[in-house]
Design a protein around this nucleic acid. Structure first.
Length: 201
DNA sequence: AAGAGATACAACCGCACAAGC
DNA sequence: GGCTTGTGCGGTTGTATCTCT
């Protein structure tokens, strides 16, 4: 990942990859003295061989003093799920309701933890379903790969074309979900809890 | 103990939008 | 009004670490 500086061109001046402690200190000190904002000029003025975007990302996601480090609490987990059910992948919007958490952190958390649970639940239901539906498959238009994309099925209002997939037909899909194409809320918290997404760990 | 696979997290990329000129 | 630049956001990728066999 870490691109070694080349011996020519201006790109050689731009560092990529993991930040060093020294770079972190430079950025922290600079922001402490001059404040944040105007990231491109900040990067140059501070003497960092980074893009403004990279500096901003590093500051917002890692160096900010008001960040909360450590595990997501059950309360935060609940809130994330609730807000995601309401807004979908609007991570920055969700992050605003979780003080000290970043959109990147929430996004990663969702992808690695919650999505994993959904995938497992999805597979369990698929196994249950497969025995009963195996004879019906020839009459459906379901693509074979669809079962691997629970997120799309779950959240996206733009994926109404998938609404006949019913990934959790027995226990999880709310009875009204399919008819909620014009509604912002897809699944209630009660329904999400019923999927036992929060009980895994 | 070693290798393979899975997981979690940091960071980058591309796009869209807003502000300034 | 059009262009340039900066910023913010969501998606994706790379890699370190952990777990399992």
């Amino acid at each position: 990942m870490d691109k070694k500086p080349c011996n020519s061109s201006q790109d050689a001046e731009v560092r990529k990859g993991p930040w060093t402690m020294e770079e972190d200190l430079i950025l922290i000190n600079y922001i402490a003295n001059h404040g944040e904002g105007v990231w491109n000029s900040l990067a140059k003025s501070a003497g960092l061989k980074r893009t403004g975007k990279s500096c901003r990302l590093r500051w917002l996601n890692y160096l900010r003093p008001d960040l909360r480090r450590g595990n997501i609490t059950p309360e935060e987990q609940l809130l994330i799920m609730e807000l995601h059910a309401k807004w979908g992948n609007r991570w920055s919007k969700i992050a605003k309701h979780l003080p000290g958490r970043t959109d990147n952190e929430i996004k990663n958390y969702w992808r690695t933890r919650i999505q994993k649970h959904m995938k497992q639940a999805d597979q369990n239901n698929f196994q249950q379903q497969s025995s009963s539906q195996i004879t019906d498959q020839a009459s459906t238009s379901q693509a074979p790969g669809m079962i691997h994309e629970p997120m799309e099925i779950y959240s996206s209002p733009s994926n109404q074309g998938h609404q006949n997939l019913e990934p959790f037909p027995n226990t999880c899909l709310p009875s009204t979900a399919i008819d909620q194409s014009s509604c912002d809320n897809y699944w209630s918290m009660e329904e999400l809890w019923s999927m036992q997404l929060l009980n895994g760990d």
